[in-house]
Structures are given as C-alpha cells and as structure tokens.
C-alpha cells in the first residue's frame, strides 16, 4: 500500500515536472527556428507529463496526485492549447501556387515611389516577404 502511494506520488511529481519543463522550455528556446515553428520536443514533454499525471491520479488519489496532477494538467493543456490551437492561422485562399504566374501589383515603397512587381520581370528573382502587422 505504502509503495503504491509513493510510486503514484513520484509519477505525479514527474508528470508535473515534465509539463512545466515542456511549456516553459518552449518560451525559453523560442529563438531556435525549428522549435518555434514546430514545438515538437515541448509538445512531446507536455503530453508525456499529462499522461504521467493522469496515470498517477488513476492509480492512487492522494493530496499529491490531486494537486500536482491538477497543476500539471493546467500547465500542459494550457501550453498545448495555446501553441496548437489558439496560435493557429486559417488556411490561405489558395490563390497562388508554385508554377503559376505571380499576381502583379503596384504599391508605394518607403520613399513613396510606386513599385510595380512586373517591372522586375527579366531582371532577377523577387522575394516577397509578407509579415504580420496591422494598419
């Protein structure tokens, strides 16, 4: 009985640690491009932490498995929701595709000069960078 309680409590603490590390490490390592874009190791940790917490709670209902489990659940689900649900963007309108002619436009630059995209044709490749900002 005592062994089972201790084991369940250990799992609860491990679960909480994994959830916390999974979530916090994402923001700590956000400057690494592949981590920022995929959040893969962090997601794996958060899911593992959640599982450990659930298993610990299912095995034995102690103060530790309940409290640590609740906190672990909050942290891991909160993190997973924010990165994989709340931060998701809608799909683009599928107007442009590789191989198709690029749509032309004429827009002023930082000096007020009108820049026509098609004026670059024949001169060299053009990289359009659309960044997230608002007017």
């Amino acid at each position: 009985m005592i062994d089972a309680r201790k084991r369940a409590n250990s799992w609860a603490w491990i679960g909480l640690l994994m959830s916390a590390v999974g979530g916090i490490s994402y923001y700590a390592l956000i400057s690494v491009p592949w981590i920022r874009s995929t959040a893969l190791p962090n997601t794996i940790l958060a899911v593992a932490g959640l599982l450990f917490s659930i298993i610990a709670f299912a095995r034995k209902r102690t103060k530790t498995t309940i409290l640590a489990g609740a906190l672990s659940g909050l942290l891991s689900i909160g993190f997973l929701l924010s990165v994989h649900v709340l931060m998701r963007l809608p799909a683009p309108y599928g107007i442009v595709a590789v191989g198709q002619d690029a749509n032309d436009f004429s827009i002023p630059n930082q000096y007020g000069q009108r820049i026509q995209l098609s004026s670059y044709e024949g001169k060299g490749p053009v990289l359009l960078v659309f960044y997230r900002g608002h007017w």
Partner: peptide, 10 residues
C-alpha cells in the same frame, strides 16, 4: 496578412 515568403523567378 498571413506571414508568408513568396519567391518569384525571372
């Protein structure tokens, strides 16, 4: 805008 990079050839 949705953040995007679009590369157009010559």
């Amino acid at each position: 805008s949705l953040p995007a990079n679009i590369l157009i050839d010559r």
